[in-house]
Nucleic acid binder design. Sequence first.
DNA 1: GGAGGCGATGTGACCGTGCGCATCACCGCA
DNA 2: TGCGGTGATGCGCACGGTCACATCGCCTCC
Lengths: 329, 329
Amino acid sequence: MPSIRDVARLAGVSHQTVSRVLNDHPSIREETKQRVLDAIRQLDYRPNQAARALVTSKLHLIGILSASVGEFGPTASIAAIEEAARVEGYSVTNLNLPDTSPEAIGAAVRQLQREQVDGIVVLAPQVRVFHVLRGMAIGIPFVSLQTASGEAGESVAPDQLEGARLATRHLVDLGHADILHLSGPQDWIEADSRMRGYLQALREADLPTIPPIRGDWTADFGHYAGRELARRQDFTAVFAANDLMAIGLVHGFRDAGLDVPRDVSVVGFDDIPVAAHVWPPLTTVHIDFADLGRRAIARLLSALRAEEAEAPAAAAPALVVRDSAIARR
Amino acid sequence: MPSIRDVARLAGVSHQTVSRVLNDHPSIREETKQRVLDAIRQLDYRPNQAARALVTSKLHLIGILSASVGEFGPTASIAAIEEAARVEGYSVTNLNLPDTSPEAIGAAVRQLQREQVDGIVVLAPQVRVFHVLRGMAIGIPFVSLQTASGEAGESVAPDQLEGARLATRHLVDLGHADILHLSGPQDWIEADSRMRGYLQALREADLPTIPPIRGDWTADFGHYAGRELARRQDFTAVFAANDLMAIGLVHGFRDAGLDVPRDVSVVGFDDIPVAAHVWPPLTTVHIDFADLGRRAIARLLSALRAEEAEAPAAAAPALVVRDSAIARR
DNA sequence: GGAGGCGATGTGACCGTGCGCATCACCGCA
DNA sequence: TGCGGTGATGCGCACGGTCACATCGCCTCC
């Protein structure tokens, strides 16, 4: 492997000049710069990241702190994050939280610090994770994917509240007055935003609120909830906080003899790939998770480079109308 | 950050002795070792990976070469790989192939080499990827997740052929004689194994073969295929090479007025999380993708450490019987 | 015309490890 | 008693970059 000194020898300059070329130092004559670049190309020279990391104590490593792998959304975001980070010359290390206890979070952050990550992307959308993170005053820039802006650390989040409002509003527009919400788990920021969007839409339409059911994002829970809820007759539509629960819910209703959408309308959230193909095709809200991941990396990198963050708005969520919600009879 | 010399000073030894303790050198007195370990604990010392990488020219970095992110299976494997690698002190960088042309594969491998990865896990299950890899004679250990054993590089693969045989056999046992196969794309090793399993099961049962339909793994294709196939009446059951296509297929059949399982039985492959909750709940073959990922890392690390690979057998695929396939009328 | 500033480049130290070799005490054996 | 072997440890360097500082023309300004 050629080193910076080999390049210097070939170009007839000092190794320091080569280093300057590599780091875009301003005071390098154009001609010298070209000679160095030629030598670099000729030798197929690549800077040794380890050596660079040793002296700058920057590993060019980004840590992902996640707590929800397995769901479609986070997974898609993670893939995009890795892709975007690699393009910028960063590696990514993914640390999945076994649970969201303060101890586990603290241990995870310390672990990432020991691995000397330059920055952290937090994909662990539990409220308590932020409390712990804020309390730790870690000396590393971090970006979160879900929290509402104004919290500690930068954040990049789709307007989940607006998406949920859209979904609920769709049901209202179809004539439904008794709309139930199957929400995500207690502590989750996303669950909270979606529920707030639901409540806001009902308030705007001056409709009564039914206490939401707390789910756990899984299709299995949706299935269980569907069978239980079928006994109640106080609603004609359900807004589920994610597609997986919505699909399970439809299954549960069917088991109990209820037809979707004839007897109950259902709207989901996320627009996972199978949403269009289940029966009935699911009306849902589309979120661009990959875009979200890319955005997070952009933010984090500008923080690392101490640049001004330009903060482009996240892509707006969009309602995707299919067949699982119809006008109230 | 404390360095190895700080530890040495505290323990009253030379930095070299500390280094030896860290690397389990045999000739260290037990008492000295304990003194060093105490000092390490006291200072909360952590070896600097960059410095270590500089001198050993091993970055403790594993590259994943993938070509199918977005599918459930590979994604689950990747998550497990990252987890397992981190536990062993390795970081992971994920390189997604934009396409599977030989140029793209070559460029990707060179890119990983430039990033100085210690080893590569190949999750790009196209036949041609292996041809290129074999041809490149890269000087880096690599493990693939899908290829049949006996090919270049080590491989860790579930017995897909057996899984497909199981699925097809299930249809045969239900009395079906005209069984169609909706396969994966041409070039894919997995598609090939699953097709071979299908053919083998038919041969064993002495049943006629119908030329398989080539799909692309997506639910959208399954949907299209279902609508087209509904015109033909030369089959009573379909074995789809993955769940996504199976779900789309059911959707397509329904659009064309065919009921699953009453008119046609369908069996999928993978057992993705929604498989149990779509209508009808999908009979499929369960594959433990996470286990596969862990196994790949174990293999790769033993190769990196020049150990003897123990080669434990992969978990056997298991048929999961639900409601999408019933006895032939 | 000489002092001072600045742009372009070179020199040497240093970052935190692992490795080769040297050193030293101690033991066994002829 | 002297010599070779061995186990435990230390010394100094190398890895490949970056950084602080030195050097050296050349231009400007009083």
